[in-house]
Design a protein around this nucleic acid. Structure first.
Lengths: 106, 106
DNA sequence: CAGTATCCGCGCGGATACTG
DNA sequence: CAGTATCCGCGCGGATACTG
């Protein structure tokens, strides 16, 4: 369970994996995909995911150098977890108002 | 996706949900289930999950007062995500050594 | 037992500036 | 474009002490 939680550690990790699950993306593309993430953080998360064997990095020999990131086979195994999470979030949003009548001050 | 990630925010949240998914548990039981978590943090996470409508709290009228926490219907919807995550973690552990031969200095 | 209050440290992540 | 280095702030979480 610790290892499982570690897969999504970092506030932006789920976002990074989410966009990579749709298609391989370059660094700059991910920055645009994920408004608010800084280059520093994106770089840090990607390196973590590289270390874990969840994503691959393919430097492209284009004249403006670029690099393409993609999920590995193992990385794709995390996608169902993300999908289930998003699904739960949607259900939660629907169930929220009508059901509990929680008077959360905030 | 932000809301989805928020469901597991906090280092201990996945653990709390994981143990509650198995059976309803009292505060002290969760503390023992999750070695290393402090009362403060467990309390904070449980209150967050209460606010989100993911868990319920049932005070028990036992002579040493106790309270039982359980997943709500919505809370149970998060369980598949946890399962998928653990599953991916297991796959990752197996795939790690034989595959990549990453020479991570660290 | 079930929490809450206070204090505090550390790590995550932003901003900025810079390199290849 | 694709990063990395430095600096810094904030929030999460631990330790401790305390209440009902």
């Amino acid at each position: 369970m610790d290892e499982a939680a570690a897969l999504l550690s970092g506030a932006w990790t789920p976002h990074v994996l989410w966009y990579l699950s749709k298609q391989p993306r370059r660094f700059g593309e991910l920055r645009k995909d994920i408004p608010g993430i800084s280059a520093r953080t994106l770089s840090a998360r990607l390196r973590e995911l590289l270390e874990k064997g969840v994503v691959t990095c393919t430097p492209l020999a284009t004249s403006p150098p670029s690099a393409e990131y993609a999920l590995t086979e193992i990385g794709h195994k995390i996608v169902p977890a993300l999908t289930a999470l998003v699904d739960a979030a949607l259900k939660l949003r629907l169930g929220q108002a009508p059901a509990a009548s929680r008077r959360s001050g905030q």
